[in-house]
Simulated assay, not measured.
Amino acid sequence: MTGKLLAILLLGSAVLAGGAMYYLQVYGFYYGVVSKPGQDVRLLAIGADEPETIAYTDFQAIDADSSPIRYRACFETDLTPADLAGYQTANDPEPLTAPGWFECYDAIEIANALQTGQAQAFIGAKNIHFGVDRIVAVTQDGKGYVWHALNNCGEKAYDGTVVGEECPQQPETGQ
């Protein structure tokens, strides 16, 4: 009888732990981002150091403090591809997935639109967090998507490679 009780206790603990991990990964750490009109969607003009705001509506975003690359956002804009020609394009943009409950953002659809030329990706801001750039993609019909991606410095810093002089100073961790 003691063996059955221990087995049930272990199985119950495993199910609870698995459920808790699932919940924390998909729901627990995310929170809605409060919109800051005129500041939410910005692009980096060619040759500029600071991004500038573009016209947008219907902004919604999520983020999490557990990782600098969990930010996702959606918006709409009236800007045409010709209007966006003066902004820095992103090299090899790869949209990161979002939780299924954040319905406006579908990484597979965004990636397909980027591959077929139906969307173009731009640099929204460099080093929004150390080693992380904000990428903004805009489709030809005015739908926009935002995510964070590791830049060259971030990839080096997080895989343990020597960062080098071209990267900004890494912030102190306070440990």
Rank of each mutant, 00 (worst) to 15 (best):
M1H: 08
T2H: 04
T2K: 03
K4C: 14
A7H: 09
I8M: 12
I8V: 12
L10C: 12
L10Y: 04
G12R: 00
G12P: 03
G12K: 00
S13H: 05
L16G: 08
G18M: 01
G19S: 11
A20Y: 15
M21R: 15
Y23G: 07
L24Y: 14
Q25G: 11
Q25P: 13
V26F: 04
Y27H: 14
F29N: 13
F29Q: 15
Y30R: 02
Y31T: 14
S35T: 13
K36A: 10
K36E: 10
K36D: 12
G38A: 06
D40T: 05
R42M: 09
L43D: 00
L44D: 03
G47S: 00
G47Q: 03
A48Y: 03
E50Y: 07
P51G: 04
E52M: 07
I54D: 00
Y56V: 02
F59I: 02
F59Q: 02
A61K: 04
A61H: 02
A61F: 00
A64P: 06
S66R: 13
S67M: 06
I69D: 00
R70V: 02
R72Y: 06
R72D: 01
A73Y: 06
C74V: 13
F75N: 00
F75Q: 01
E76W: 08
D78L: 12
L79H: 08
T80D: 10
T80M: 15
P81T: 03
A82G: 10
D83W: 05
D83E: 02
A85C: 08
A85D: 07
T89Y: 08
A90F: 08
D92A: 11
P93E: 03
E94D: 07
E94H: 06
T97Q: 11
A98P: 02
G100L: 13
G100N: 12
F102G: 01
E103C: 05
C104A: 09
C104V: 04
Y105R: 03
D106M: 09
D106W: 08
I110F: 02
A111S: 11
A113I: 02
L114F: 03
Q115E: 14
T116L: 05
G117V: 05
G117L: 09
Q118I: 05
A119C: 06
A121D: 05
F122C: 01
I123M: 02
G124M: 03
A125G: 11
A125N: 09
K126W: 01
N127M: 03
I128C: 01
I128P: 01
G131W: 06
G131C: 09
I135E: 05
I135H: 07
I135M: 11
A137G: 12
G142T: 08
G142R: 09
G144C: 09
V146L: 11
V146T: 14
W147P: 07
H148W: 01
A149L: 10
A149E: 15
N152P: 15
K156H: 13
K156Q: 15
G160K: 02
T161E: 10
T161V: 12
E165C: 09
P171H: 08
G174Q: 09
Q175C: 10
